[in-house]
Design a protein around this nucleic acid. Structure first.
Lengths: 345, 345
DNA sequence: AATAGGAATACAAACGTTTGTATTTATGCT
DNA sequence: AGCATAAATACAAACGTTTGTATTCCTATT
């Protein structure tokens, strides 16, 4: 049933062998460029292969090599350009190691993530990258024993390539605090319990100024557009708006600013909004978004290096990754009340 | 060298067979849920497989089945959320047919596209989707004979799932014409020669009003951010601005509006800008973008159906796909000169 | 001219599944 | 109890590569 088998007879190494009147093993070696086969033969075989439209069968190759030369990347949300950066970093670095990259999109759904991970395991990938994993830590614990899985951006203690997640959020929170904000909202994103560095930094920042933790200022973003709409609705239904919001990421922030504007709430005049990630769009919108730049490309590169040295048997050391940078633009400003008092010029 | 072989001994069907004191063939059938094996045995084997952490070896399976159950999608630009829609459509429909989806990002580079296509061919995918292909038609001609490749959005005569590309562009061009624009710029995107329906509609629209084709109003977008910057620079260096621009896509349009604003050129007051694709962001920016909605999700779905019926041996007929819709927002308006005359209220 | 040594190529087994056929075991019938 | 039949399982070949070893064929040395 699940076998839409196009089933065109494909050219194999044996076909080439026959055509060249030579043994299959010679064909392999010729195609590998081995000097165990005479140059003349090698050329003849290469030409023949090209002519006949030979395409190597990766299944067979993987089977005997016990390795596929593949790196899998499990992307939680293709819709977010943020992850494209990761992918590019991975691809560029993988190319250097003769690895090829395959991507799977999970839409941030835990079950789909499981499926994607499984697919890659079945494919016998040489490495599996899982940025911002949705599955609980425990799910991966077993897998780590059997496969080269590296988390990206997930604050694990092991098997992870990361930069300072908490520090990044502190950048944002300190910025807001310095502007004079005291009542700050927070949009949390999808994440398994215990993997919320942004939330951690948020609460710590509040504590540092002795501000109370107000649960009604915590909103949930699931990655979808509608979800942001809902947040805007909840916000505007509040008795009193917070003076600032730390959004889960730039996509969320941009949509939020739009949804707020539609409700007559101006950014940053009525409320400041800060994002996270610094995607290209962040600088394009009006007001330009204050955010924190995240070295996703470099994380992609480093993940592959990590995997590679893992494959070589060495225990890889975490390489240096540029720290997150605060990008102050126009979407954040001093809170209205403060402004009334201080900036009456 | 390119063999970072993690090489953990993996559990195979034989191991399970040994543990269950049974033949490997029985294990396969048990795992398939075949009723040729007694229920008790079947359960025992399933339990064992789970316990031992068995992961099927897709290579072996593909080898004997001569089919991988995979669909490959070659994405030209992961950075553009537009393609995420396609991917989602593909995934949803593929799931219905027990097919699994793998994605490869090419960054719009022709050589990389070739590599991605090759990778998927080696993987013996049951279907290969190539939206907005960069490689020339001729490259795919040979391949069509040997593999189930479907183009999406590429105005081919065959092997393609598409909706009315030229019609979509006519929607935009007519809108601009109706607003009174006569001197319109056009941003062409990367595409192999002969595959530029937007360009075709653009020129045709100009002809229809007897306007001259002015080469200096044609700009080139390569997908990158910098590329849009360059366009803005070229534009503002012009002796006289066109009154409107038809951008290659929304990403391009959004960045362009930003770049123009930075140069003191207001949209739509000084120049109207229309996009293409209707990505989510398009409605969020200021001014909200006029664009044309493209049913990318449905195209993804239909592509998989197309592939599937191809696999079944039937010649698939192009299913109905919702037509493109014009979305008029705020980034387009009457040209300044016209407005002076007509809208003096 | 015989042969050692190396270059070029052939042979064969293995990778982990799947599947058609053969074999064993259990069941029901007379 | 004996046999036909069905149910359950075992056997073996195949999928397309790769690779270690064995074989053949030269070429050069004596």
């Amino acid at each position: 049933m699940a076998k839409p088998s196009w089933q065109t007879r494909r050219v194999t190494i044996k076909d080439i062998a026959k055509a060249a009147a030579v043994d299959p093993s010679t064909v392999t070696r010729a195609l590998q460029g081995s000097d165990r086969v005479r140059e003349a033969t090698r050329n003849k075989i290469s030409a023949l292969a090209a002519d006949m439209g030979y395409v190597p069968n990766m299944a067979a190759r993987t089977l005997v090599n016990r390795s596929s030369g593949l790196v899998g990347v499990v992307i939680p949300d293709m819709t977010n350009p943020f992850f494209a950066d990761l992918a590019r970093g991975v691809e560029d670095e993988a190319a250097k190691h003769d690895l090829r990259v395959l991507i799977s999109d999970t839409g941030g759904v835990e079950a789909v993530e499981r499926g994607a991970v499984n697919l890659f395991l079945e494919l016998k990938v040489d490495g599996l990258l899982v940025p911002m994993a949705r599955c609980p830590q425990q799910y991966y614990d077993d897998l780590h024993a059997a496969a080269p899985i590296v988390h990206v951006n997930s604050d694990d203690t092991e098997h992870t390539v990361n930069c300072d997640t908490v520090g990044a959020s502190e950048l944002i929170m300190n910025h807001l605090l310095e502007l004079g904000h005291r009542r700050i909202g927070f949009v949390r994103g999808p994440a398994p319990p215990g993997r919320e560095p942004k939330m951690f930094a948020y609460r710590q920042a509040l504590e540092s100024i002795g501000a109370p933790y107000e649960p009604e200022l915590i909103f949930s973003f699931d990655g979808s557009f509608d979800s942001t709409e809902k947040i805007a609705a909840q916000l505007s239904a509040l008795d009193e708006l917070p003076t600032a919001i730390y959004a889960h990421n730039d996509v969320n922030a941009i949509a939020l600013i739009h949804a707020l504007r539609q409700r007559g709430i101006a950014v940053p005049d009525d409320i400041s909004v800060a994002g996270h990630d610094n995607i290209q769009m962040a600088g394009c919108i009006e007001p330009a978004l204050t955010t924190v730049a995240w070295p996703m490309y470099e994380l992609g590169q480093q993940s592959v290096r990590y995997l590679y040295s893992l494959g070589e048997g060495k225990k890889p050391q975490q390489a240096k990754i540029p720290p997150p940078r605060l990008i102050v633009r126009e979407s954040t400003g001093a809170p209205r009340s403060t402004r009334r008092n201080t900036a009456s010029s």
